[in-house]
Write a protein that binds this DNA or RNA. Structure first.
Lengths: 205, 205
DNA sequence: GTCTATACCGCGATAGAC
DNA sequence: GTCTATCGCGGTATAGAC
């Protein structure tokens, strides 16, 4: 297994370099030569490790998604309170942005383009799966009385999904705010809003 | 001026077609031949109207941004109450998504790539300008007591900016929700949160 | 596992006829 | 204002030497 690890390590090195470039410049805008240059080898040599540029991004995304959705499933299956589950799902997402910023960025920026190919059909499936997770959490939250009764679940789901993942555009691991701090601020806004007036019972004397 | 209108109209037709393709597939991923095909002419003919593909996206973005920022300036300069100004700025943004979805999508998806060229330096300037508008509105809101004192202005600005514009990914003009309905839901969440518990005074017995 | 060399294609753009 | 024809570049990918 030592030999296998070494082999896998080289592969993963190259994938990590590719992921950084894909995230920074976009899949289509990153050339095979860019990846080779950044790896210190020539473009032809990359094809000893991978079939194609598409194969590289495929492996990057599918590996990440597998890990991420296993984590979501664990939250959904847990027996915590409704509100706690929602908080954990949100924190999980910011943690993913912290630990896999390139993968998240690639998914955010290029899933639309890649999803058009049959090979990347699983991206749409994962999207549907994510929707199910959140709709379940929100529906449960409303039923349990933890969330407002008048919420449009579908709209709220889209807001949460987009507003969480879009943070990858500016969040930098090791920057001024930790991912837990960002999650705290986000949850405060999401759950209680930015206004000083109380919700439901509008206004005070 | 009738002749001029006809001339401008042809130009604008082509730009509108290009904008749709840029928004759908991305700037880099849209070929000059795609645009020509969709316009019913050959690729060479496009160069009678425009210098280059870059010129096209330049004209699309700069025209839109000029209009948008004039609207923001009007809100900022108005003498409405702090909270009302914030609401108007948000509604303005959803209105822009409704009326210029292609332009917003192009900006969201390709500003990063395009901004690297000197020619598109104004994109970064506009970004800074937008930040100034929002930081001013939020600072004013906190000072006036309309917003929580403990808000991280910078973080809140980024949340609002991203969470508003990202709606272009799923909002469809003429779809199930009008842009005003979406803005209503968004403002409700932003200002008051989705939770049923009251803010500030955390917890109950 | 990497390099040399190269095939092949689609891209943005141009020149001149109509 | 559009078409025909074409150039030159840079992209992905391949074959075989080292």
């Amino acid at each position: 297994m030592a030999a296998e690890t070494a082999k896998a390590t080289r592969r993963e090195q190259l994938l990590a370099i590719a992921a950084g470039l894909f995230a920074e410049k976009g899949f289509k805008n990153t050339t095979v030569r860019d990846i080779a240059d950044a790896s210190g080898i020539l473009s032809g040599s990359l094809y000893h490790h991978f079939d194609s540029k598409e194969s590289m991004v495929d492996e990057i995304l599918s590996t990440f998604q597998e890990e991420l959705f296993a984590a979501y499933d664990a939250v959904l299956a847990s027996d915590a309170e409704s509100r706690a589950k929602i908080e954990r799902a949100v924190r999980l997402s910011f943690e993913a942005i912290d630990q896999h910023p390139h993968e998240v960025a690639i998914f955010q920026n290029d899933a639309g383009y890649l999803g058009a190919f049959e090979r990347f059909g699983y991206l749409a499936e994962r999207n549907a799966q994510s929707r199910e997770v959140w709709v379940a959490l929100l529906t449960e939250g409303v039923a349990a009385g933890a969330l407002r009764q008048d919420l449009d679940i579908e709209l709220t789901y889209r807001f949460i999904r987009d507003t969480v993942w879009v943070a990858v555009k500016w969040y930098r691991p090791g920057g001024r705010h930790s991912h837990t701090e960002v999650a705290d601020q986000y949850l405060t806004i999401l759950l209680d809003g930015i206004s000083t007036t109380t919700p439901q019972l509008h206004e005070r004397p």
